[in-house]
Amino acid sequence: MSQVLQLLLAGVAQGCVYALVALGFVLIYKATETVNFAQGDLMMLGGFFALTSSVILGWPYWATIVFAVAAMAAVGMLIERLVLRPVLGQPAFTVVMITIGVGYVLRGVVTMIPGWGTDTYTLPTPFSEGVFQIGEVIFAVQQVAVIGMTAALCAVLYLFFRFSKLGVAMQATSQNQLAAAYMGIPVRRVNMMIWGLSAGVAAFAGILLAPATFVHSNMGFIGLKAFPAAVVGGFGSVPGAIVGGLIIGLVEAFAGRYMPEGFKDVAAYVVVLVVLLLRPSGIFGETAQKKV
């Protein structure tokens, strides 16, 4: 029993990171119908920004978070302005390929920057090593912190979308760009903001992930695990992304324990195939037929 709880905890903690990356996918997808294959690489870049402020500049943890998120938000907006806006309205596949290109560039550029390069780094956190025990279950402070911070971010995002003017404008844009434009919402600028928001969330995910995987130029490939999370939840659904992330995290944790070796790495993809076969638009996805 305690083992199951232990696995639950590990799965949820890992799932939170997937959920945050998946959240980044979903935010951009909902707004612009673009699947951002560079989401993992944005997370990686966020990790490196955090590394810079924390190790090289020696800033405290909270300042590191603020710095990395803000810096990534700027990078996200820059990417939207320079790369995505010129191809607005092109077929989805074309736009997917362009984000793949962005991913390549980010991975390459990181290795060229002095002080970053191709090495692997640890990102110090205030809750690195501690553990505590409740009953028979051992809680790593690290895992609890990840879960807590994810929950906090979700709450902030919820309030943002629910009550802030910009959040409501973003929702409107996601629903119907043309109508939003007619209502006086500057759609292009909102799209840019959404890219900023999504990149900021990615930076946050990068900071949470860093203690587990370290910071290196290929850490973004974990973003590929977040795809299944986003798809399982249904690509256009924010709560779906969270649930999907948790599902994938849990499945991985249990597959690693109870299934033959190697299954852990593909468990996420098996789950996504099964979900797609049963429900082609994910669990929370909307199914709609083209009208003729």
């Binding site: 092109q90 074309t94 390459g108």
Partner: peptide, 24 residues
């Protein structure tokens, strides 16, 4: 540091982006 392993990725990415934007 520019001519290292990352160069190929950067060039590849830029070529891809460039083609899609300027020569679909």
């Amino acid at each position: 540091n520019v001519g290292g392993t990352g160069l190929q990725a950067v060039v590849f990415g830029l070529v891809l982006i460039g083609f899609i934007i300027f020569e679909p």
